[in-house]
Computed example of a mutant assay.
Amino acid sequence: MTISLTENAAKHVQNFLAKRGKGVGLRLGVRTSGCSGMAYKLEFADAVDSEDLQFVSNGVTVLVDQHSLPYIDGMELDYTREGLNEGFKFNNPNVKDQCGCGESFKV
């Protein structure tokens, strides 16, 4: 079981944590939402919870709750720029379908 970050994503997270002046890493999970059933949760973590599973990728600690892991196991998180748009891109091998806007997915 693993979660990984590309070099671009890791640099973005490290730069943001440095600007914040605090934080232990990135918290990643899923929640029920959207027209396809699930959506990603992504936030900067200031502490490690006792239920968190920890992965380290390109120098960044990624925290995942046990409930979310089966839905995102094997996922690679990237940070991309396309024209004027930039943001995280979720490369999740478990996704079977997603809504047209790309905000939610089904496993």
Rank of each mutant, 00 (worst) to 15 (best):
D46Y: 09
V60Q: 11
F44W: 11
Q54W: 06
Q54E: 14
V48P: 13
Q66G: 15
V48L: 07
Q54A: 09
Y40N: 01
Y71L: 04
E51C: 05
L63F: 05
D52L: 00
F88T: 09
G29S: 12
Q54F: 05
G87K: 14
F44I: 06
L53V: 05
M38F: 12
G23L: 08
Q66P: 15
A39Q: 00
G74P: 02
V56I: 08
M38Q: 15
I72F: 00
E76D: 13
T61V: 03
V24Y: 07
G87N: 15
G74R: 01
G74S: 04
K89C: 05
G87F: 12
G23K: 11
M38K: 15
R27Y: 10
L69E: 04
V30T: 00
S68T: 02
L53I: 10
E82R: 08
S33P: 07
F44T: 07
E86P: 10
V24P: 13
M38D: 10
S68Y: 01
Y71S: 02
R81W: 12
L63I: 07
N85Q: 11
L26Q: 15
G87E: 14
L42D: 08
R27P: 10
L42P: 09
L84M: 11
L84R: 06
Q66M: 11
E82P: 09
K41D: 15
V56E: 12
D65C: 03
G74Y: 01
G83C: 02
D73E: 13
T32M: 10
L42H: 13
R81V: 12
Q54Y: 07
G87Y: 11
F88C: 06
Q66R: 15
G87C: 12
G29N: 13
G59S: 10
T32K: 15
E86V: 05
G74E: 01
R27K: 14
G34S: 04
V56F: 04
A45I: 06
S50R: 04
F90C: 14
R31W: 07
V30R: 01
F55S: 03
T32A: 12
T32L: 08
T80L: 13
H67M: 05
E86H: 08
A39I: 03
A45G: 09
Q66I: 11
V62P: 08
F90S: 13
R81G: 09
V30P: 01
A39Y: 01
N85H: 07
Y71C: 03
G29V: 02
V64F: 09
L84G: 08
S68W: 00
Q66K: 15
G59W: 03
E51G: 09
S50D: 09
V24E: 08
F55M: 03
D73A: 01
